[in-house]
């Protein structure tokens, strides 16, 4: 275990219990005066915290893998069009009125993610070309975005409309163990696939030709990436909606503490993503806001956009 990973694990061991106590109702562990403290902890806050860890780990690791795959520190798992695809699937569930049955919404979202992955593989799967892949991903993202807008504009009633818009903002409020059961297995599988891609991503640091000369099979790597990113991001969107910028920010923050190889970035990024989402979600709960709590997706975009801008300004010197 590397040092950054150990530090992040320690930080998580500290933050998880703290985050359980924080919320609209604060729980004092020494004097639990609130009657239903156990219910709040076990049925409300614990699944929410676990979900933040699962979704954050998936987004962080897939961000690190994407930056390694595209050899670009500005890359984000959203570039593959998988998150917009999953969102479109979820929006379809709202549109056709299936969202009220708890299981169907995430199933629709996962189907949307699978659809985006299949389309990607169909367009670019044979070549294994990174450029073709990115362009195909951007095309799929635009298409899914357009169809989502279409669904919003044609939504059958105002309730569906408000549900879709609220859901798209991304949140972990009111989630249950049920959602954990839906998101955790695909995320774990996706993380394992990204882990398998680690050595190939390292080789890719030297460019595509050198990577192939080192025995990397581009088509195999592409499949690991599509399935790994698809499962982690798809599962995240299925239970939490669109939560952007985690996959962009976290690898950046942890990279200076690693030896900068993409493979040594994967575990710290997963842990860092889990930590970021856990802290951000607890902060959303605690912030006193009129009209309910701050949506997690909005909070992270408010953090992420200036971060991205700062990064661009810092890189501008090198690019100009």
């Amino acid at each position: 275990m590397t040092r950054p990973a150990l530090i992040l694990i320690l930080a998580l061991l500290l933050t998880v219990p703290l985050s359980l106590l924080a919320g609209r109702v604060w729980i004092d562990p020494l004097h639990p005066v609130i009657a239903n403290a156990t219910v709040i902890l076990v049925d409300l806050r614990l699944p929410r915290a676990v979900l933040a860890l699962v979704v954050g780990a998936g987004l962080g690791a897939s961000g690190a893998a994407m930056q390694g795959y595209l050899r670009n520190p500005l890359a984000d798992p959203g570039l593959f069009g998988i998150a917009p695809g999953a969102a479109l699937g979820a929006v379809c569930a709202f549109f056709f009125g299936y969202a009220s049955q708890g299981v169907l919404l995430p199933v629709f979202a996962l189907a949307g993610a699978a659809g985006a992955m299949a389309l990607l593989a169909l367009i670019a799967g044979r070549t294994g070309s990174v450029a073709l892949f990115t362009l195909a991903g951007m095309m799929i993202a635009s298409l899914a975005g357009a169809l989502t807008s279409l669904a919003i504009s044609l939504s059958p009633n105002p309730f569906a409309l408000s549900e879709i818009v609220t859901w798209l903002m991304g949140a972990l409020a009111d989630r249950s163990w049920h959602d954990v059961a839906i998101a955790a297995p695909p995320t774990a599988l996706g993380l394992a696939l990204l882990w398998l891609a680690g050595r190939s991503l390292d080789a890719l640091s030297l460019g595509e030709a050198a990577a192939r000369s080192l025995g990397v099979e581009p088509a195999r790597l592409l499949w690991l990436m599509v399935l790994g990113v698809g499962l982690t991001v798809g599962a995240g969107v299925a239970v939490a909606g669109i939560i952007g910028f985690v996959g962009l920010m976290v690898p950046h923050m942890v990279r200076p503490f690693t030896d900068r190889r993409p493979s040594s970035l994967l575990v710290p990024s997963a842990l860092g993503g889990a930590l970021l989402l856990l802290v951000a979600d607890a902060a959303c709960r605690v912030l006193p806001l009129e009209g309910g709590e701050l949506r997690l997706g909005i909070a992270l975009s408010l953090l992420g956009a200036p971060f991205f801008l700062g990064l661009l300004l810092r890189m501008r010197k090198g690019l100009a």
């Binding site: 050899r71 050198a210 030896d259 190889r261 993409p262």
Partner: peptide, 15 residues
């Protein structure tokens, strides 16, 4: 077979 490409690209600032 070891292969050294012309561009000499290194994507990340490795040691």
């Amino acid at each position: 077979i070891g292969f050294l490409p012309q561009d000499g690209e290194v994507a990340w600032d490795l040691t």
